[in-house]
Structure formats: structure tokens, C-alpha cells
Design a protein around this nucleic acid. Sequence first.
DNA 1: TTCACTGCAAATGCTTTGCAGCGCC
DNA 2: GGCGCTGCAAAGCATTTGCAGTGAA
Lengths: 151, 151
Amino acid sequence: MSESAASSGAGQGEQPREQPREQRVTKQRLAVSAALDRLDDFVSTQDLHRQLQTDGVSVSLATAYRILQSMADEGLVDVLRNADGEAVYRRCSVTAHHHHLLCRNCGKTVEVEAPAVENWAARTARAHGFTAVQHTVEIFGLCPECSRQEA
Amino acid sequence: MSESAASSGAGQGEQPREQPREQRVTKQRLAVSAALDRLDDFVSTQDLHRQLQTDGVSVSLATAYRILQSMADEGLVDVLRNADGEAVYRRCSVTAHHHHLLCRNCGKTVEVEAPAVENWAARTARAHGFTAVQHTVEIFGLCPECSRQEA
DNA sequence: TTCACTGCAAATGCTTTGCAGCGCC
DNA sequence: GGCGCTGCAAAGCATTTGCAGTGAA
């Protein structure tokens, strides 16, 4: 799973960094945002769109794609790819830094902490003179259940 | 730039317990295999197909997909997804495993070894009962030069 | 009123699949 | 010779994009 140790843009407050364009607050954007809040795990755009339809909210698929992309650009959500290569998003929660162990068969995810990796990443980067470091770590395999089935 | 540690087969004691069907040795399969040997890094099917054409070997795109998939199924190559969500393959070579530290500004990359991470990933996965594990680790930040410029 | 945001549908581009002929075993 | 492997072209899918109408500021 990708977890960004946002040691960089992690800023909580709105930094007057840049505001390329005014983001208008539309009901579609709010709906997507709300849905992301409700969901804890990573979801694909298709999933989120389906979810919205189930909820009775009407947001076109194309718009869902556009909104999630722009949110990712703004750093409001984390993006990564699932085993099928689909982009999946999750609300950014800087506080709970952890990585995911995910099953490539059933999609089940397990949250794991990786202090060792955090340290290693920071140390390695520093050793090479890199700054503003972020890292991504994902582990995927077959969960116990799926392992049993495949065997 | 995704780098994965196909630590997959590693310890889990996965035995080549199956040979569902006889794999015939065809010139296409040999060509793909040879191309993979020549390439050190991960390549997408499209890349590999293009490479083969350049080499004057004629293998249809569909066949390239089929061969790479079957090789992946047999565990002969490592598979993962690049940033665009495309499947990328690499000949399994436990020896040359490493990760990348890359500059998000100039794109410069540094290869780094991460035995600590390999171990952690394997251990964590095992602790949760996962098998056939792979992992992806990326560290990105600003290289020394770019750090200076941004400062 | 203005112009970013939406929805719809067509367009992309990667990947898969149906089918008939070919060639490895 | 049988049957898996190929090539070709036609799908299949997730994602993107053009365009005109809509609504937030």
C-alpha cells in the first residue's frame, strides 16, 4: 500500500503555497468527499461511483474521475494502484501513518506499522543527501484464506 | 518508477507443485525469454513487444501478452504495476534486487539495497499468514542539487 | 454575468478473446 | 497426427476528452 510519509507537504494548515485555480464547491464534489469520509479503505473510481449511485446521489462517472484526480493533485487523497492496475483513492489522514498488506486475490487489507521501514527510508535518503522525503511501501500476496484455496 | 521486491518465492516454501499443461517451446516464447534476459529492468508488455520488433523478431502483441502472463503464472517472471497501471515484468533474479531513491524534481535515481525492508516485509507478511508475497518500495524526495535550488 | 464544473457520449489505449491455421512433440 | 500456440482482428474495460448546458461566486 502506499503510504506517504508526508514529511513534506504534510502541512495541516492551508499554506498560501499556491492556488492554481479556485475550486468551486459543488454538490458532486461534496458527495465524493463525503463518500470518501465514509469509506475507510482504498476505493477505485468505479467503486466510489457505484457507491454514490447506491446512496442515491447522482454523479457521472466522468465527473467522479475528474474530482478524484483533482483531489489527488491537491494532495487531499492518497492514490495508488490495486492489483488490477486500477487507481484507488483514500482520504489522506496524516496522523495515522501506516502501510497496507493486501491480498491480491480478495482485496482484503491489513494495516501494519513499519517503524523499521520509516527509519530506513529516512536514513537512506539522508545518506544520499535527499530532502523532503516521502516513501511508498506496499506488500501484497495471498491472505490466509486465499492461500488455502489456491493450494 | 516502481520498484518491487519480488521477494515472492522467498521462504514460504512454495514448491513447483503443479504443471497443469506442457509448455511448448516455440520461437516466440524463446524470443520473449531472450528479450527478458537482455533487459535488466521491468518492462511492460508493450515495451517488450516493441523491443522484439526492433530486434527483427516477429511476435504478435497478443502473443506477447499471453506468453508473459503464462510466464508470470509459472513464476518465471516477477510482475507488478508501474505508475500508469500497466503490468510490467522482469526476469526473476533474486540477486539483483534493489529499490530506487528518486528525485521528484529532476528524476535522478539512486539504486539502494534494502535488506532490512526485505526482511521486514517477509516477516510481516508471514506474521499475518500471507503467502506469495511481493512488495513495492519507493522513496522520493529532492536530490542534493535540487534541494539546494529550492532552498 | 462569468467561467469552472457537469453530464453525455465518443474516443483512447492497454489487455483479452474468438477462431482458424500452423507447427512442436 | 493431435492439440497447444500463433496471428489477426474484434471485443472488453477503465479512463480521458470534446462540447454545450448549468450553476457557484
